[in-house]
Write a protein that binds this DNA or RNA. Structure first.
Lengths: 231, 231
DNA sequence: AATTTTAATATGTAGTACATAAGTATTTAA
DNA sequence: TTAAATACTTATGTACTACATATTAAAATT
């Protein structure tokens, strides 16, 4: 850990509100007792007693778990454990204006990594229908203007379709969440750089080429992004 | 959307607590006003007045934002916007026992995708020192027992080092979070299957081989995982 | 002027009260 | 006797008050 962040970290561990503590204990409790989704949880009053805190504090902690989708509550019925929406909370904070620069860069690289790793699953799951749809998207972009905002829109559409073709909803959603970050960083480019491999080229590779060829195509398509990565 | 989930979704939108609403409005407010990290936010009482809710409800919403790392509060000083820890909330819910099976599978595939996409960044960032360390890890595993839990521990150590070599802290942390999921699914395998490309092979590829060769090695190393993916 | 003391203030915690929804039991009517 | 309507009970949701605590700002003291 860098010494520069020391004071921040120390404050973070030393100053914990009771809600923080209760949240932690509840998470621990839920995982330790190996509750399964659907299981009923103790009532608020029972928890306040067990934890020795006011209902107020407890509810702040419960509110967090509710946000995470870990619990659901109904009046009179009480609380039940549920399967959390793992990306829900991520969605809330994915704002390029709030996230620090280092993390933004990390996210940018994460997306590049995913993009390069897609080929394997793509070649397992791709269907004729999907490729046709992808081709339609690629062709529709051939004629349109080269303005910056259009270019980005096309990128989003095309690559979004590729993620969709993986059949992996989580991955697809994840990518959608990364888009604002990607757009934010790419928007800072003064001169739009076009890769040597176009969308149409990628479609053709997907049609006739091997997994490896497609991957190399994708690499060339993203080459200008990779060239900007710091060593 | 499948009809099977309809009633759930309808309930989710129709039954919103005021804390849900306030959380939404606050997030909107923070993003719209384009506050920057460090900026001071209105006091609780001002917010309760502006939103027309009790301090109780407001604090439940604020508690959520605090959990996300979006705001920090100090007594008397008030609240300030801060850069959220984007993976913090993800960390809380990453439990294979709670997450539904479809999502678990998605996460598993996500990790495979990342693993396959690592080569490009790895070949930009790899250093002699890192490779030596990785080699040390790989060699130390050669002689050890083949018991299941040991094998997984080795996998974690080796692949963890590779992620570390990317220099991408977010990616590294993300991978660490995915491990329990990975372990959970792999643990279900009755017979441990060993890939044709070992860790030592991968190290040698990293030393002398090209990006593409390394990637193909990784693919072979993970082959048995890929073979189990459903079409 | 510098230091100490005091006051003010915003968040943190506790507790009470009541609203609301949703089961549960009871009463009523056919 | 059974079905429907009614009243009751209960757990969560919301509001409000009170006070603790930490920290900044102001005042008083040396």
């Amino acid at each position: 850990m860098g010494i520069g962040n020391l004071h921040i970290d120390i404050e973070k561990v030393s100053y914990k509100t009771m809600a923080d503590e209760v949240e932690m204990k509840l998470l621990e409790y839920l995982k330790k007792k190996s509750f399964k989704p659907g299981d009923a949880l103790p009532k608020e009053m029972e928890l306040t007693e067990a934890l020795g805190v006011s209902r107020n504090v407890l509810r702040e902690a419960l509110s967090r778990l509710r946000m995470l989708g870990m619990i659901e509550t109904k009046k009179r019925r009480g609380m039940v454990l549920s399967s959390p929406d793992i990306l829900g909370s991520l969605e809330r904070v994915m704002d390029p204006l709030i996230i620090d620069d280092a993390t933004l860069q990390d996210i940018f690289e994460l997306r590049l990594t995913l993009e390069m790793g897609l080929a394997d699953i793509l070649y397992i799951r791709k269907t004729k229908k999907d490729i046709e749809e992808l081709e339609k998207i690629a062709l529709s972009q051939k004629t349109t203007s080269a303005k910056q905002n259009f270019r980005i829109k096309h990128e989003v559409e095309f690559h979004g379709k590729i993620y969709q073709m993986t059949g992996n909803r989580t991955m697809q959603r994840f990518q959608t969440m990364l888009l604002p970050i990607f757009g934010h960083l790419v928007n800072e480019e003064k001169v739009p750089i076009v890769g040597k491999v176009s969308h149409i080229d990628l479609v053709n590779l997907l049609k006739n080429g091997t997994r490896e060829q497609f991957r190399e195509g994708m690499r060339k398509h993203l080459e200008h992004h990779f060239q900007k990565l710091k060593k």
